[in-house]
Design a protein around this nucleic acid. Structure first.
Lengths: 352, 352
DNA sequence: ATGAAAGCGCTAACAC
DNA sequence: GTGTTAGCGCTTTCAT
């Protein structure tokens, strides 16, 4: 079957109105559960609507109300499993509430980010969820915005807009991961990070690393601080190959994302080194990559479900004109232990 | 800096027109490079537009032309790396051409798919790219549609709509993967597939498997045909654990997706079996998972870049009213060899 | 409880 | 080459 009845479907509110023997205004009221109408006409109209698979033209609606039921989601890179999970969850929740999502990838480019945001504004979106947005925009002043995964310091400046921010406790995550390695006996832990990006989560995770080392009375060693140009498996792999070639001793790798951890595992494998026998590794995000990578990556789990739920609730609240109770949410993280940090022998003693 | 000048920006074409000392119509013509206007006024208007960060209201435009510069992308699950890559690539290309993308996840639900498609139609999208859509829809009759990754037989019925279909040579892919295992000495190859879904790619890949076995004069063995309820790492893992527990002999696993292959690797690892020493494995999609999984998964690579490019080109052509030269594209696939199919010893002889 | 009418911002047909 | 005008489909006063 192709699609049901072959009867030409009505497409405008006017036609529906005619079929139901009422005026367009009444149909509108019924659709939007606005104003008053009799139980009787409601049923009749609803029936015609159903019968005709009628869906109101959202351009007209958006034009009229300057508030289409569309929410813009701006995300650096949908290819990153962490973001993909978050976006999927978010989108499902919003669609359930009758909202469509314009999903925009910035590909980590600030220029694209700005263009996307302008384009979303031009499209009269009801609200926006900015994932790892890099800055504040003047054009966002009177649009509800939820920032997710965003550096706090930037956010402070936007409080005036009554926007909201949600992030994981990234420092705690960095701390937990590093701590796990230290507890397993590592004493020379390389860190794969990317501070050059505008993403301050990286910085927070690095702070967690520092904090853990400090607790153990260990110094920060310059040659173990591997700062990358971008968050990528390929680049991380190259960095670890470089570290190995340099002859620098190390017994653990703390990566600030699973994708980078994966690169590390690839590099080690290429040089015939085993995880965790020779080097222990931790990732961040607890993505599918972590589950599958090498002997399984121990990884910091962010609560994506809660993030999505909170984001959806908050943006919808704000769209309805309510002021959220809180403007800042820091979500707890947890460590998921896998093979990559199993203690298999006297690690520390051997490499130092 | 927050966002530049504090001057209140003009927001409507009328205001821009006033500022430039022309009529709205002229501004419209210039924006759309439509009709005639003098070089002089063009410059003046463009300058005012730039100055004011003016972006035309796309609801109004969409309402008027019933063709907003928005393209709907419907995808089963953005969480699947293969789809994520495709969507990202596609979106970037389209945005470059001035189109925004409404990305909709169906989460493999036909009901959601229908709702999304209706919603997109209601939003007057200029065109749609349906990735692994499950059926034809009457409401799509006069909208340009590109089907990607879609079973051919369904497509045939939609040729009348002048819609276009792009898919990889899935059977060839299934054949290549199976052939690789056979060449490496496997003789009892389990296949992880999911025929129950509406996705006929699965069927095509399975046909490739059959073809390869036939070429080698091997029979199809019922107990090696593992048909799953869904495409998922978790479910695939359970299936392989079940197979192992059943005592069935096998020396290779051909999975119709990388995600399922990953599940297989997890299961084998749990039972202390090594890849490729004990069992060889192949995946499909050549995703990040394949690179990182176990010893690296040999996987069938689809040309996502070409898919995206073709999809973008075709949908834009169709939107502009051109009729594409061809209505069906089958893209070549290739095998990417990794550790999971390395020959490490006399495989076949040992297990049979 | 319902209808008539105005208008959101834009484009396209028609004037000039 | 540019302005005037009508109207896309909807919501929302304002009547009744």
């Amino acid at each position: 079957m192709l699609g049901g009845s072959a009867v030409p479907k009505a497409k405008s509110i006017k036609e529906i109105a005619e079929l139901a023997g009422v005026s367009a205004a009444t149909v509108s009221r019924i659709i939007n559960k606005n104003g008053r109408f009799s139980r009787e006409t409601e049923e009749r109209v609803l029936h015609v609507i159903q019968q005709n698979d009628y869906v109101p033209n959202s351009n007209a609606r958006g034009l009229r109300t300057s508030r289409a039921r569309v929410i813009g989601i701006v995300v650096p890179d949908i290819t990153n499993p962490h973001f993909a999970n978050l976006v999927l969850d978010l989108e499902m929740r919003l669609f359930q509430q009758g909202y469509s999502c314009l999903i925009c990838n910035t590909n980590e480019s600030q220029e694209l980010e700005k263009k996307h945001i302008q384009s979303l504004v031009a499209q009269n979106v009801s609200g926006m969820v900015l994932i790892s947005g890099t800055r504040n925009y003047a054009e966002l002043e009177d649009i509800p915005v939820v920032y997710v995964d965003r550096p706090a310091h930037t956010f402070v400046r936007s409080l005036e807009n009554a926007s909201v921010m949600i992030e994981s406790d990234n420092q705690k995550g960095g701390y937990l991961a590093t701590r796990e390695l230290l507890d397993a006996g590592c004493r020379r832990i390389a860190i794969l990070k990317c501070l050059t990006s505008e993403d301050d989560n990286q910085l927070a995770r690095y702070r967690g690393y520092q904090q853990a080392l400090k607790e153990y009375g260990l110094p920060l060693e310059r040659e173990l601080l591997l700062d990358q140009k971008a968050v990528s498996t390929r680049i991380a792999r190259a960095a670890i190959l470089g570290l190995l070639d340099s002859g620098t001793q190390f017994d653990g790798i703390m990566a600030t994302t699973d994708t980078m951890a994966a690169g590390a595992v690839l590099a080690l494998r290429e040089r015939g080194l085993y995880v965790p026998e020779d080097v222990l590794v931790t990732g961040f995000d607890d993505s599918a990559l972590a589950e599958v990578c090498g002997p399984g990556l121990t990884s910091v789990r962010q609560d994506v479900g809660q993030m999505a739920e909170l984001s959806a609730d908050l943006i919808l609240q704000m769209i309805e004109g309510k002021t959220p109770e809180r403007f800042y949410y820091r979500l707890p993280v947890s460590l998921v232990r896998r093979g990559s940090t199993k203690i298999v022998r006297q690690q520390a003693a051997m490499m130092e």
